[in-house]
Simulated scan of single mutants.
Amino acid sequence: MTSPRPRTPWPRALAYLLGAAGLLVLAAAGVAAVRVVASLEPVADFLRAYPGDSTLPDFVTPGIPAWVSWTHFLNAFFLVLIIRSGLRVRNEKVAGGLWSSKRVKKRRMSLALWGHIAVDVLWLVNGVVFVVLLFASGHWARIVPTSADVFPNALSALIQYASFDWPTHDGWTNYNALQQLSYFAIVFLAAPLAAITGFRLSAFWPRQSERLSALFPERIAKALHWPTMLFFVAFVVVHVGLVLTTGMLRNLNTMYAGNDGDGWLGFGIFALSVVALVVGWFAIRKDAWIAAFARRFGEVRLRK
């Protein structure tokens, strides 16, 4: 008796291709529709009145300081590890290893969760360093709105992006209004929300405090934590896409090489950072690698 033939993957692949084609058609239709709307006289007048710029105070100087470049890279590196370890925690059925606190014996968790929390802490430390330097240097005004006209200008920039008639981009001098609001939301809204909800879901939450737990129920933290991560993923995809399509070399030099030129130094540093991100993505999957660090803070048992 012959064994049954394996099922062909072609129907599924074809469905994916048709789905992708459908999304492209919808996207093209959306761009065409926005272009029509943008050509209407009232909308055209609005775009002329609000070209999409953000207003900066006089004390803000052009350029990207070196500490911004370093914290930007570390933020991306830790964020990749957080996303990968978070997916492990969400999908892991059987823990590959367990970590137990030496001080609080009842505090234990999977190695995947310990790795996720450990990277969270590093990400938060990097974020605190960034925010302190941000306000100490005056660089804060690049991502914190200082004028109410940021909102109509952000809407204008959004219309321009959606119509593929993109606003002028000059990250060396200042961000446009939509970028400013997006970066503000990431740094001062999404990041704290991710930290607070993550802490609520962790083993470090003071569960003996019934009042605190009642004020911030676990179900609310769960309902917010995952969508917040998805927001970060969506932001990264759009952010990187625009960096690469709105003057790639100049953008990468601005962020990584500390200059406003169009040479290849920034691209080279960016390429090395991508290698580091890939290595980190695969490293955080290995319990043995996590255990090497986790043993410094508690007891570790690996499953054989």
Rank of each mutant, 00 (worst) to 15 (best):
E218L: 03
V131K: 05
L212V: 02
A112M: 13
A157Q: 08
A177H: 13
I186F: 15
K106H: 07
H116C: 04
A141T: 09
A195G: 13
V125Y: 14
S147Q: 13
K106A: 10
R211Y: 00
L215C: 03
D149T: 14
K106S: 07
R142K: 15
L193S: 03
G97M: 02
L189H: 12
I196L: 04
V119C: 13
W205C: 00
W205T: 00
V131G: 03
S209W: 01
L189M: 11
A141R: 11
E218C: 05
K105R: 10
S202Y: 05
K106R: 07
V128Q: 02
E92R: 07
L215S: 01
P167L: 08
K93Y: 04
A112F: 11
Q179E: 14
A136E: 03
F216C: 00
Y175H: 03
D165K: 14
W99P: 05
W99E: 11
A154E: 03
V119F: 13
L178A: 07
F151W: 12
R142F: 15
L133G: 12
G127N: 09
E92K: 06
A136D: 12
R200T: 00
W140F: 07
T197C: 01
V129A: 11
S100G: 06
Q179Y: 14
Q208M: 00
A194C: 11
W140G: 07
K93L: 09
I143H: 09
E92Y: 04
A141F: 03
S156R: 09
L178W: 14
V121Y: 02
S147I: 14
F130R: 08
L215K: 01
T173D: 14
L133T: 05
F130H: 13
V94W: 10
I143W: 04
G96V: 05
S156I: 05
A136N: 06
Y183K: 07
S209R: 01
A162S: 11
S182R: 10
V125Q: 04
E210K: 01
T146P: 09
H169N: 14
G138M: 01
A141G: 10
D165E: 13
A157P: 00
E210A: 01
L181M: 10
T146K: 06
L212M: 02
L113Y: 09
A118S: 12
N91W: 15
P192T: 01
A154C: 02
L193W: 02
H116D: 07
E210Q: 02
G171P: 10
G138A: 01
T173H: 15
H139V: 12
S182Y: 03
P206T: 00
V187Q: 09
L155D: 03
A118F: 14
Y161I: 06
A118M: 05
H139Y: 15
L122G: 11
P167G: 04
E210G: 06
W172N: 07
K106Y: 02
S202G: 04
S101N: 08
Y161P: 08
F135E: 03
W123F: 03
G96I: 07
P152K: 05
F184N: 15
